[in-house]
Amino acid sequence: MISYEFDYTRPDTVEAALDLLDDDSKILAGGHSLIPALKLRLSAPGKLIDIARIPSLKGIKMDGNELVIGAAATHSDILESDLIKQHLPMFAEGAALIGDPMIRHKGTLGGSLAHADPSADWPAMVLAAEGTVVVQSKTGTRSISSDDFFTGFYSTALESGEIITEIRFPIPAEGTKMTYQKFVQPASRFAIVGCAALRHPDGTARVAFTGVADAPFRDTAVENAVGDWSEEALEAAVALTAQGMEFNVDHYASETYRHHLARVYCRKALKALLY
């Protein structure tokens, strides 16, 4: 399959990329969502701006009490990072479940968040880990809490003319436990349902889902119900999973089956956080 014609540029800096970015152009990172779409001629940008090799967008580092992942860090960069294994082990656990090794070598965290596929894995993990998406435009930078970032079906709070530069996470306190549990669609490898959950040492939780609805979401009803993490409390929390949500329905899973899976994966995630 051959896409429509387009021009291609590969600027060295975010500023140069922003100068080139207009309504007729698209950012290219790993290309593993964009290139398939171009090949299907679902999109016809006049120009691609390749940011995958911009040095300031790569890398994973500590900055004060935050862990910072560059937007162009690949899934496999994250999977292999010692900082991630130490502070956000759920990200290594989850990255290993994305696609296959070849996809992980190209696909990026920033690309996945910007694309906001309703079945993508990172959105749930970024929500549970309290991520902040940092974006830059010609007029400056702004930080968007992950709670406000995902706005609907393939939609985000990103505005035209903005590039995601990094995603920042508070470093979890000693004793925090976290996990990502995914029911994989065996052909595409995307999540039919994915649940990311984090338990702070004080017993409070953050629980987020992907695959369940049009957009990933935090389930505050579940978070509030975990209480003392007793068997009964957890069952009560699981029963509240995705209450009142409008479910994704496709040929893989009906509404009833998806709701069932969401509860099962919620239970798996919460149980993985018991001491």
Binding site: G31, I35, P36, L48, M102, I103, H105, K106
Partner: peptide, 8 residues
């Protein structure tokens, strides 16, 4: 390793 059908 990468999939060369999905790269330019």
């Amino acid at each position: 390793s990468v999939k060369s059908c999905s790269m330019l």
